[in-house]
């Protein structure tokens, strides 16, 4: 398996501010990778560095094995910028023709690829209309089409659904899944966590320029520290028995909501409850959403 994106200690400094701080990432070919972060966390700067749009202050990066300083590294790459302004005086088809040619596609290929790309993003049959007359959502779809026009092996999408309605968002999710089925690597920049949760294999969370968490989506969601225990009766002794393992214990009728110090403490907690004389009816780790993980990581750092 080849590596689609590899960065080592990639940095970008604007004046005194470090926009991207020593980011080292590996994105494998064929995976859908979610790059998460609040607005201003440095996601866009990172992607722009990969594409040669912004020059890194230091660090190394490769796209599909080629250093990013080599323009050929962008040959098999499609990019949808966050600000998806396309020349308004062109038609949809002309736009795709231009970008396809710049990406090295031949005219014959484009004759087939342009209608296909328009169809894929839901603009089938609208290619001869001027971009000026497109709605915001249609322009964003066209921006996605131009990223796909030269049959890329790697697609970098920067907030691809910001101008889309819920139906449009689902279309894009389906498209990303279809790309994964075609073994196209997708790097998705987003602050829409639900969206990322639905399509990504792996994610990295960027906070103030550095990667603070990275891993398989399932693993991140599994590191849940929320536990709900149902016992026969919640006594003060039972609550005290759990306390050494928890940040917080909230009794609620016959159940206890426990926020564990570590997810590894689940067996110890059940043993302590048992030793305190409680009859255990139910032990259930609370399923976390990516949002919980994200907030859990970002919030304490902001306060600290």
């Amino acid at each position: 398996m080849t590596v689609a994106i590899e960065t080592v200690d990639l940095c970008k400094q604007y004046g005194r501010r470090l926009a991207v701080d020593r980011v080292s990432l590996q994105v494998e070919s064929g995976e859908v990778f979610g790059f998460l972060g609040a607005n201003g966390a440095g996601k866009t700067t990172f992607v722009k560095m990969l594409l040669g749009l912004v020059h890194p202050t230091s660090g190394v990066a490769h796209l599909l094995g080629r250093p990013i300083q080599d323009p050929r590294s962008r040959l098999p790459v499609g990019y949808q910028p966050e600000q998806f302004r396309l020349p308004e005086w062109m038609t949809g088809t002309e736009t795709l023709e231009l970008y396809g040619q710049l990406s090295g596609a031949s005219r014959q290929d484009l004759r087939v690829e342009i209608p296909r790309a328009l169809e894929r993003v839901g603009l089938g049959g609208r290619g001869n209309e001027g971009v000026r007359a497109y709605s915001k959502g249609m322009q964003q779809r066209l921006a996605l089409a131009q990223a796909l026009i030269a049959r890329p092996k790697l697609v970098l999408l920067d907030e691809p659904t910001s101008a889309l309605d819920p139906v449009g968002r689902r279309d894009i999710r389906d498209l990303i899944r279809a790309l994964r089925d075609e073994r196209v690597t997708v790097f998705l920049n987003s602050h829409l966590l639900a969206e990322v949760e639905l399509v990504c294999d792996r994610v990295a969370i960027l906070h103030e320029g550095s990667v603070v968490r990275e891993g398989r989506l399932q693993d991140l969601l599994k590191t849940s520290t929320q536990l709900r225990v149902v016992v026969d009766a919640v006594t003060p002794a039972v609550v005290e028995a759990v306390r050494p393992f928890a940040h917080a214990v909230v009794p609620n009728g016959r159940s206890l909501d426990i926020e564990l110090l570590s997810p590894d403490h689940v067996p110890a907690v059940t043993r302590a409850l048992h030793d305190a004389g409680a009859q255990i009816w139910e032990v259930r780790p609370q399923q976390m959403s990516l949002e919980d993980v994200f907030i859990g990581i970002v919030r304490p750092r902001e306060n600290g």
């Binding site: 722009k48 594409l51 040669g52 749009l53 323009p71 050929r72 590294s73 962008r74 040959l75 790459v77 990019y79 910028p81 600000q83 998806f84 302004r85 396309l86 020349p87 970008y99 710049l102 990406s103 090295g104 921006a143 131009q146």
Partner: peptide, 14 residues
């Protein structure tokens, strides 16, 4: 100013 340069300069050209 309009940002159209992004899609242009991200192509495999110098």
């Amino acid at each position: 100013e309009t940002g159209t340069i992004l899609t242009l300069a991200a192509r495999p050209i110098r």
